[in-house]
Structure formats: structure tokens, C-alpha cells
Simulated scan of single mutants.
Amino acid sequence: MKLHYFEAVNSASGGFNWGKFAVGLFGPDEWEWRSATTDENGETSPYPVLRTQGWSRRHLWVMDLATGEGALFLPGGSARADLNKHQIWVCVLYEAFLAWLYEQARERGGRLTDEDLAELPKLVEVAVPSAWAGYRRGGKLLSELVAAFAAGEMTLEDIATELNAHGISPEDLRVAQIRAEGE
């Protein structure tokens, strides 16, 4: 995997955060890797593992170097919805940086190559309010809120406020619902 390193800051908007990211694309060795497992006839699969798992050459691996967590993303959709789906622990600048990567891919026909990543600016300014700590999106939050509502412990307004505090919009919920119905 070829890695490219990027930084993001929010200093132009008066912020103090500094994000450090590794962005990678699978290389030829990863695309040729085949499983050593065998089927009932003792045969190994003729198909590369990454392809059998649904990954494509358009997928980017994006790791937050402060938290050590990352995921594979397919640029082009909603960075916020994708981040909610993966539920990784990230710095406050991760979502805006991911959205910036998605925009770079859109400008290049929906895909970023190693050459594209090498040519992109290594320092990106994003307009995000500062925060003292990172966060983990998604997870049990929604089910916990639904349970609290069902128990009469929260109103719908309380739930909306809590979701907003976690950066989850009504659009994010609609996207999650559509994905869940499709699975």
C-alpha cells in the first residue's frame, strides 16, 4: 500500500486543531493477494481477496494518525454518512478532511490515483469549530436515545439536540435508514 501524508488545520477560522492523516491506495501486491484457505475440494480461490470483499481501486484508506483509527472509503458520497457508518474514533478535523478528499476525487472523475494524491497540497485549511477532543460517530448513540425516549426520559427535542451535538443531521439519519433497508 502506498501511503500519502496530509495535515489539516482550522487556524484561518480562529481554531487551534491540527489533524494528521495517512491516505493509502492498495498496490499491485495487495490486488494480487489470494487466500490460502481451501474449499471442500481442497482448491484455493482463483480470485484476489480484495475483490471478493467488494473493494475497488477507487477506495481510499484514510487513517487518523492521532487516534490510530481509519477505514476504507469510496469517495463521492457523504463524508458525514460514511464516517457515521464506520464509527471510528477521529479528530475534529477528520470529517472535513474526508469531505475535501471526496471533492478532489469528484474533480478527477470519481477516483484518486497515487499520482493525484502525490500532487495534492499536503496542508489543508478546513472551516471547522475547534474542539479539545476527538469523537466516535454513530455506534450505540441512536439506540440509546430511542430507548431513553421510549422510557419517557427524553423528548423528541432532547433527542434532536443530542444528535446535533454529535454532528448527526436529519439527512444522516435518512441515509442510514436507506442503507439499513437495503441490507
Rank of each mutant, 00 (worst) to 15 (best):
E183W: 11
V128P: 04
L3Y: 15
L65P: 02
F149M: 11
W31Y: 09
V128N: 02
Y5V: 03
R106S: 14
G15F: 09
T161S: 03
R80L: 05
T44M: 09
E69I: 10
F26N: 01
V62E: 02
A147K: 12
L112W: 01
E32S: 11
G167E: 03
A8C: 12
G15Y: 09
I88Q: 02
K85Q: 02
D82P: 00
E32T: 07
A105Q: 08
E181D: 11
A176R: 06
L141E: 07
A147M: 04
A8L: 14
K2A: 11
F21M: 08
E103M: 09
Q53D: 02
D116L: 07
G138D: 05
G182N: 15
D158R: 05
A105W: 04
S56L: 07
E7D: 13
R106L: 15
K20C: 14
L141I: 07
R51Q: 14
G152P: 09
L60S: 10
P121C: 02
G134E: 06
A165G: 15
E153M: 06
L145G: 02
Y47S: 07
L123K: 10
S78Q: 06
E171Q: 12
W100N: 07
D172S: 12
A8W: 14
E181H: 04
K122D: 01
L98W: 00
L142R: 15
G138P: 10
H166Y: 04
G15T: 08
F149R: 09
